[in-house]
Simulated scan of single mutants.
Amino acid sequence: MSLADEVAAVHAGRPDPAALVGEFRRTHVLIPTVNDSLMSTELDGIRWLYAFTDEEALSRFALTRGGEPGAEWRYVTTSGARVLDVLIPACEGPTGVALDAGSEQGALFPPVAGIVPDSAAVDIPPSGISDAPHRGEG
């Protein structure tokens, strides 16, 4: 299935998380830029990079943000794999992806293991820190 089909399956209550992430990784997305920075927002301590499946989805988002119809928005095009494997780890703090934000068929890719590299995942403790109890102390 395509990325759009996988997202539709999630919205229909038939999610296949591995297939959804796999299709995102294989798909090229558009990431809007502002002043040479990737456009994002922050919510509850997580930065969300905006990514769009096509110019039409980006245009709809631009209109919801007060953009003029037909106004040009700058963006970069890259693979979903590059977003998850390179861009997310390079961001400061926890960062996920908001795909087709503002649309009825949007999806979130949170910064968790299995989506982003372990080094950028919020559900994996930093290297050298363990939640396991220490033995022989006390």
Rank of each mutant, 00 (worst) to 15 (best):
V112R: 05
R26H: 06
I124W: 05
G66Q: 07
A51Q: 05
T27G: 04
R25Q: 12
A107F: 01
G80A: 12
G138F: 10
A98H: 10
L58Q: 00
Q105S: 15
E23I: 11
P69N: 14
S79W: 01
G67E: 06
D36C: 05
G96S: 09
G93T: 11
Y75A: 09
V34T: 09
G96E: 07
L87V: 14
G106V: 04
T41P: 07
P17Y: 02
R60V: 09
W73G: 03
D85Y: 13
A90R: 07
T27K: 02
W48R: 03
P111Q: 09
A132K: 09
C91T: 13
D85L: 09
G102Q: 08
F61Y: 06
A18T: 15
E72R: 12
R74T: 09
L43T: 06
V83A: 01
V112C: 04
R14G: 14
L87Q: 07
V97Y: 01
L84W: 00
E68V: 14
E23S: 10
V97G: 04
D123V: 10
M39C: 14
R47F: 01
V122N: 01
V7Y: 03
V21Q: 00
R82W: 08
S130N: 08
G13I: 01
L58D: 00
T64N: 12
P32I: 15
R60F: 09
A51I: 02
P32R: 01
T77Y: 06
A51F: 01
H11M: 13
T27W: 05
D5G: 12
A107C: 06
F52I: 02
L63W: 02
R25I: 02
A81V: 06
G67L: 03
R47G: 07
S130D: 14
P111M: 08
L87P: 02
E104T: 15
T41Q: 11
Y75G: 13
P15T: 12
L58N: 00
F109G: 02
L108H: 13
R25N: 04
I124N: 05
G66V: 07
P133I: 15
S2D: 15
E23Y: 07
A18E: 11
A107D: 04
L108N: 12
V29K: 00
R135C: 06
R60T: 11
P117S: 13
S103V: 09
A107K: 06
V29D: 00
L38T: 02
L99V: 08
P15C: 14
Q105D: 14
R65M: 13
V21G: 01
R47A: 02
G66K: 10
A9G: 01
A101P: 03
V122S: 07
V34W: 14
G96W: 01
S40L: 14
S103R: 13
V21P: 00
H134Q: 13
D44S: 15
V122G: 14
G138E: 12
F24W: 07
W73Q: 12
A19R: 07
T77Q: 10
V97C: 03
D54N: 14
A132L: 14
I124H: 02
A71D: 12
T53N: 08
G67C: 03
L63C: 11
E55G: 08
Y50R: 05
L63R: 10
A90I: 13
G22T: 07
L84M: 10
S119P: 04
A62R: 01
A62F: 02
T64E: 13
R135H: 11
G13N: 11
E137P: 02
V116L: 03
